[in-house]
């Protein structure tokens, strides 16, 4: 991953090498191979367990630091689900919490130098995004039947405009999972690639200090982006879920 620092003369940028999937124990990458993806996904699971299970093991009435963090995250996502989807969305809270905790932990683990960012892969985020999309669509039809199609027929608009709006609504509905997944993967990929490009500039001694300051600044921005993208993914999931629960609003 970091072997591009010295490769003959001149600048060498390999911002995409960090995203390479590698088999940990050699051999071709097949479906069940244990790769660096497996490693960092497992670390994300451990991080989730560490954040939410180990910290709350003492069940203190007056929480310590770790338990406060766990309760804060619980309260944050719970309130988000309740605010956006209403009372009847609460039963989907564990799924949304799963998404939030996974994306948050994966994003932050990806910021560790030399690590592998699982959420920067379109395959990963597409599973998340299309999973949400399919779940929400199925749920919408299961709960509302054909009335769910009312989502694409804006009754508040004048009649001649409605078919046009319906087409636009339909397109925007089917673009949702694409934008949902590419937003997350693109943000992660862009940030990490930019970090690598700045690190590549550090090969030139004259501008190395500037490059290092730049890396630090971008890194700070990436910490922010990691948290915001987890939040945005979660809140958009809540918004889509709200559409499925209440197509008429």
């Amino acid at each position: 991953m970091a072997d591009e620092a010295k490769s003959g003369g001149g600048l060498s940028f390999k911002p995409m090498d960090q995203f390479e999937v590698k088999s940990l124990f050699g051999g071709e990458v097949g479906m069940f191979t244990i790769t660096n993806v497996t490693l960092w996904l497992a670390l994300a699971v451990l991080a989730v367990i560490g954040l939410l299970v180990l910290t709350t093991s003492k069940r203190e009435t007056v929480p310590g630091r770790g338990q406060s963090i766990a309760e804060l995250m619980y309260g944050f996502v719970y309130k988000m689900v309740e605010d956006v989807t209403g009372k009847d969305g609460i039963k989907y809270f564990p799924y949304i919490m799963t998404l939030f905790m996974f994306i948050l932990c994966a994003n932050f683990l990806g910021l560790i130098p030399m690590s592998f960012t699982t959420t920067s892969h379109i395959a990963v985020t597409a599973v998340l995004g299309f999973g949400v999309f399919i779940a929400v669509t199925v749920l919408g039809f299961a709960l509302n039947g054909a009335a769910f199609l009312g989502l694409f027929w804006p009754t508040s608009a004048p009649l001649p405009l409605r078919p046009v709006l319906a087409v636009i609504e339909l397109i925007s509905y089917f673009v949702r999972p694409v934008s949902h997944s590419i937003r997350l993967a693109g943000n992660m990929m862009a940030g990490h690639a930019v970090l690598k490009v700045f690190a590549g500039f550090a090969q030139v001694a004259a501008i190395a200090p500037v490059a290092i300051v730049g890396v630090m600044a971008i890194y700070g921005l990436e910490v922010l982006v990691s948290a915001i993208q987890a939040y945005v993914f979660t809140i958009l999931t809540c918004v889509y879920l709200k559409d499925a629960l209440h197509p008429h609003h």
Partner: peptide
């Protein structure tokens, strides 16, 4: 295939950890 396979396992594990252990416990604490 590799990524999707491991991702789904991860999500299932996190879901069960959260829904069986973490969330009921935090709800009970609160």
């Amino acid at each position: 295939a590799n990524q999707i396979f491991w991702l789904i396992i991860t999500l299932v594990v996190i879901y069960f950890v959260l829904s069986r252990v973490a969330l009921p416990r935090i709800a009970a604490i609160l």
